[in-house]
């Protein structure tokens, strides 16, 4: 896909979004549902514009815990993935642990984390990590393993150290998989942060939505959701951008370079 193709793609997305918003606005004006059920987009925008610092403050908190959880997932996830490739025992242990934790609904675990870690940022980060780390470990381990056997033979002929093989062959080979994992993980980290905020605490977009719902303030619920949606989209977009910068050599990017 060329740069121009990407630009027109983004434009197309915006047009579709704008059209949906206009349709929504017209529908609300025509059928006039009670605002408690469905407020108009203009009302939601007005709500956001009325208290930007309120939404900004809570969004920043959610962003902080999401990023902290995401960063921890990447660091821990890559380390665990390396361990699973290096040792069979570690592979068994990590896989079992991941399967067990992944099969538990995180919402059900959230109260436990509040008991252990309190009502601050820590339990939110912990839940974000629990949700996000699985895709990192699975994808990176796969990337580390699927190395051309001839490349490993070449390394052996030149008597390379295991460290050199990991660093110069396996790890770069796993980078595309790492990005796939990270794009999934960042959304999961955001979900984890919100789940944590739903359960306890007085900060974050999850808290904003929960409180507004308690007051039947549907406009504010929607405003919180809009900020959340923008946050998730921007984080995903930033990762796409990073991927494009870091992996210009990858098969999926080559046509861009050649064109």
């Amino acid at each position: 896909m060329s740069a121009r193709g990407r630009g027109s793609d983004a434009l197309g997305t915006l047009v579709v979004l704008a059209a949906l918003l206009v349709a929504w606005e017209i529908a609300v004006a025509l059928f006039a549902p009670p605002p408690i059920l469905l407020p108009a987009p203009s009302a939601i925008l007005a709500e956001l514009a009325a208290e930007p610092s309120y939404f900004g403050r809570h969004a920043l908190f959610t962003l902080g815990t999401t990023l902290a959880g995401f960063a921890l997932s990447v660091v821990l996830g890559v380390a665990l993935a390396v361990a699973t490739v290096a040792s069979r025992l570690a592979d068994r242990l990590v896989t079992t642990l991941l399967v067990v934790t992944n099969s538990l609904p995180k919402v059900a675990l959230a109260p436990l984390f509040v008991i252990w870690l309190g009502t601050g940022a820590a339990p939110k980060i912990a839940i974000a990590v629990m949700l996000a780390i699985v895709s990192i470990v699975v994808d990176v381990a796969h990337g580390l393993r699927s190395v051309d056997p001839d490349a490993l033979a070449l390394a052996r002929v030149h008597r390379a150290s295991p460290w050199a093989v990991l660093w110069k062959v396996r790890f770069p080979n796993a980078l595309p998989a790492l990005f796939v994992g990270m794009k999934v993980a960042v959304s999961f980290a955001l979900v984890g942060a919100i789940v944590g905020e739903f359960v306890a605490g007085s900060m974050g977009l999850g808290h904003v939505i929960l409180v507004a719902q308690g007051q039947f303030d549907t406009v504010r619920v929607f405003a919180g959701l809009v900020v959340l949606g923008v946050l998730g989209t921007v984080l995903f977009g930033l990762l796409e951008l990073a991927e494009r910068l870091v992996l210009p050599w990858h098969v999926s990017r080559r046509s861009e370079r050649k064109a």
Binding site: A151, A153, L154, R156, R159, L247, V251
Partner: peptide, 19 residues
Amino acid sequence: CEPPAGIGMVFQRDVLLDW
């Protein structure tokens, strides 16, 4: 027993690293 020193090897495929 293990790869001796001073050997160069060329495979049927070039095994160049894409990155």
